[in-house]
């Protein structure tokens, strides 16, 4: 019985690179990358911005959520090269001039996290949710935050934190 873990692909795993320019948290970067590099891996491995988390790498958990040209996306499911020229905001870019973003402060106030691993994604998602303006009620917030899984189960506190930040904005 022979099992190959995949049919033969091109066995030139390292060959070919692409150049990518993008702005992350206000800083412009020019990089030469393996085209397979996801936006998430670009942030974590090439820019050492490890705030954006890898929880599944398949768009199923939301931990890698960042703001891409102002919209929340899962950075694991887009290739860095596809975002050439884009403007990216990560959790590291939410605080301004040493002051926490109101949602960051609200997360601390309401203990909206435990292990902290889903937190950057929840924050980026929550910041975008407030900006989108589609969610008014608790039910609407819950639904529009449902792409961000928190295994520690901090959901009720995350909801309270978002509501606090919404009132402030």
């Amino acid at each position: 019985m022979q099992q190959r873990n995949q049919p033969a692909g091109r066995a030139d795993g390292a060959s070919g690179t692409v150049s990518v320019n993008l702005t992350v948290n206000g800083t412009r970067h020019s990089l030469t990358l393996d085209p397979r590099t996801s936006l998430l891996d670009l942030l974590r491995e090439h820019l050492d911005l490890t705030g954006s988390k890898k929880g599944c790498d398949h768009g199923q958990c939301g931990a890698c959520t960042v703001l891409l040209d102002g919209r929340r996306v899962v950075s694991c499911l887009t290739l860095a090269v596809m975002q050439d020229g884009a403007n990216v905001t990560t959790v590291e870019g939410l605080a301004k001039d040493g002051h926490l973003h109101p949602l960051q402060q609200a997360f601390i106030d309401h203990d909206a996290f435990q292990c902290g691993y889903c937190t950057p994604g929840q924050l980026c998602s929550g910041v975008a949710l407030i900006a989108e303006g589609h969610a008014k009620t608790a039910d609407e917030i819950r639904e529009l935050m449902s792409g961000n899984i928190c295994r520690c189960g901090a959901y009720t506190n995350i909801l309270a934190a978002i509501q606090q930040a919404m009132r402030q904005s």
Partner: peptide, 21 residues
């Protein structure tokens, strides 16, 4: 008391096992 590691966790400064280089 709010978590003493709260700021580290909400700013992305808290580093996990795969984040040390």
């Amino acid at each position: 008391v709010s978590r003493v590691d709260g700021v580290a966790k909400v700013t992305g400064a808290a580093k996990y096992a795969a984040e040390f280089s």
